Amino acid sequence: MTASVLITADDLRALLAGGAGIRILDVRYRLGFTDGHEDYLAGHIPGAVFADLEADLAGHGEPSDGRHPLPSDAALEEAARRWGIGQGQTVVVYDDSRSLPASRAWWALSRAGIADVRVLDGGLGAWRAIGAATEEGEVTPPRGDVVLGRPGATDVLSTEQVAGWGGVLLDARAPERFRGETEPIDPVAGHIPGARNLPIADLLTDDGRFRSPEEILSAFEVVGAAEEVPIAAYCGSGVTAAQLALAGALIGREVTVYPGSWSAWSNTPGRPIEVGAVPAEEDPLDE
């Protein structure tokens, strides 16, 4: 994949002005706040349909499954049709939270076979910054006819598979959570043994846009995520890990996601836990 997974606000406005038949999804969501629907109703990109991360882009299970396990393949297809996505249609996703939930939507829909899913770089803030119009109220599109693939669990990692992972394992959480100094949500603080910390914030600018491919590539290589080694990612609950996978796509690096992430690992009895920073002199390729 290439940088085409991102779209600028100017390019999106031009597509809409030209009558391009794209489907836009508003994926506003913040942990501990609302589902974003009220904010969506108050103002969104014209034609955008609201997509609920908790209800449609995540499943529900036991604590050992994590807070945001994958929805079933059938459930995701039903949601995609309800959003009005047609077969072969380009989809643009955005949010107002540094492209975090939008990245989950990009990842879920891309792995299910939608060939052209793009994330609005900078989200709703970038759209408003160019003076583009918004509209209020609900958009209820005609039902779509998209047929999604059935990837199941073929291209993601389970807790057992993570325990035996032979490549580089990246932890996308903030450094203090990685080191185990604080844990505001999950039952245990720390990180998965052998993981390397690559905070997603390091890959974004202050206004929530992705940094240049050169900067992202450098950040990956600093933590040992070189081109020739398998790369996997986790976070708190599988949402930020999807954003790290998107960052990997921008530089041509395939990143396998552990959807259960720390919320699953820390809720599975008997799983080992490390705390503290990884020693600087430790070579990740020699682990």
Rank of each mutant, 00 (worst) to 15 (best):
W127N: 04
G18L: 05
E282K: 07
S237Q: 07
W127L: 06
I251D: 05
G21N: 13
R211S: 00
L170R: 03
R173W: 01
V27D: 00
N267T: 10
G144L: 07
A9V: 05
D26S: 07
V188Y: 01
M1T: 06
M1K: 01
G122T: 04
D206R: 15
I7N: 02
A74Q: 15
I130N: 00
F178E: 11
T140P: 02
S212D: 14
G190W: 01
W265P: 06
A75P: 13
T205G: 09
D73T: 09
P151K: 09
R196M: 11
P230S: 00
D155T: 15
P279A: 06
T140H: 14
D26C: 10
E176F: 11
G47Q: 08
P46L: 08
V275F: 10
L285C: 02
A219S: 11
A105D: 06
R82C: 04
A195R: 02
D35G: 13
A80C: 03
E62Q: 15
I273W: 06
E281A: 15
A74W: 13
E62G: 03
A14D: 15
I200A: 01
T134E: 14
P142N: 03
G167Q: 12
D207E: 10
V229I: 15
W262E: 03
P187R: 00
V49C: 04
V275E: 13
S110T: 15
P259C: 05
A74I: 13
W107T: 03
A108W: 09
A264P: 08
G224S: 12
D52N: 13
A3L: 14
G66D: 03
V91W: 04
P269E: 01
S64M: 14
H68E: 01
L12E: 02
A132N: 04
I251W: 03
L169M: 09
L250T: 01
H44F: 13
V119M: 04
A108F: 11
G180P: 12
G180S: 04
Y234Q: 00
P279M: 00
Y94G: 00
A80N: 07
S72G: 14
Q161K: 05
S110Y: 01
G152C: 12
G47C: 03
L246Y: 08
W83D: 11
E214F: 01
Y258A: 00
D65G: 06
F33E: 15
I24C: 02
P259G: 04
S158G: 09
A9E: 08
S158H: 09
E38I: 10
P272E: 10
L203Y: 02
G19H: 06
L76C: 07
L170K: 02
G86P: 04
V162T: 13
A280G: 06
A172D: 04
